[in-house]
């Protein structure tokens, strides 16, 4: 079975520093978000249980060629890179990924993280499913494939839904679906030898449309708090009561 895991190259969030409320992104290494690694791991586990192939699809700037080695080291069999230098919004990324998926011979299962690590807009998966006209199940905490049927546990805030669908299906996964494996040295060294198809986005011959989202500003929030020092528990309780937080509520 052919499994596609769509991953997004993002700056390493742990290494972003803030100066004068501005995020400093220069020199921050690019990587995949942690949740994308869980998506890949989910794909790997399905592959191992059912045989087949895991292909990683990513859209983004040229640095992808290096970043994708992380996914290949972690077990993906091959990668398709859609090279776009310009910034894209979720709708544009979705159109590009959908176009790339259409070019592929047969895709049974598409897996993504439930939201990208940096933007967390959670749109791309849903948009791709709509473009391809296939069913989707978001927020999966468990995926089991039996023949041409996939059984998914969708984990919502207040309940879990057990859903069955015929392949092909698009699934987005929660970060707690698994613990992504750490690749070994040999896997890392072999990653560069796995097949990678790199496609300039314009060669796909589709119109991904205009950027529909305009960012006015993107700053670390200011924090202004009163910092009133109370000197006893009694004083704190009185203060809480004046804010409307009584003990007996």
């Amino acid at each position: 079975m052919n499994i596609v895991v769509a991953m997004k190259q993002i700056p390493d969030l742990q290494q972003i520093r803030i100066r004068n409320r501005q995020p400093l992104l220069d020199d921050v290494p690019l990587t995949f978000g942690n949740i994308d690694k869980n998506a890949l791991e989910a794909g790997m586990q399905i592959k191992e249980a059912n045989q087949g192939k895991v292909t990683v699809v990513c859209a983004g700037p040229r640095e992808l060629a290096d970043t994708v080695k992380e996914a290949l080291a972690a077990g993906a069999d091959e990668a398709r890179l859609l090279i776009v230098e310009e910034e894209m919004d979720s709708a544009q990324s979705a159109r590009l990924i959908a176009a790339a998926l259409r070019q592929m011979e047969q895709v049974d299962l598409i897996i993504m993280g439930e939201g990208s690590g940096d933007n967390y807009s959670s749109q791309v998966g849903s948009r791709v499913a709509q473009i391809l006209g296939i069913p989707q199940v978001g927020f999966a905490s468990c995926i089991e494939v039996k023949g041409s049927v996939v059984r998914i546990t969708r984990s919502l805030e207040d309940c879990e839904e057990i859903i069955e669908a015929q392949l092909p299906v698009l699934i987005t996964v929660m970060s707690d679906i698994n613990t992504a494996r750490i690749p070994s040295v040999s896997q890392i060294l072999r990653a560069g030898k796995k097949p990678v198809v790199s496609i300039e986005a314009q060669e796909l011959g589709i119109d991904i449309g205009e950027l529909s989202i305009e960012t006015i500003s993107n700053l670390a929030p200011e924090m202004q708090r009163r910092q009133i020092v109370t000197t006893s528990a009694a004083e704190l309780v009185r203060a809480l009561e004046s804010e409307g937080f009584g003990g007996r509520g």
Partner: peptide
């Protein structure tokens, strides 16, 4: 945005 490090104002 940026994993919670910033707040984006977007249109």
């Amino acid at each position: 945005a940026l994993g919670g490090a910033t707040e984006a104002i977007q249109i």
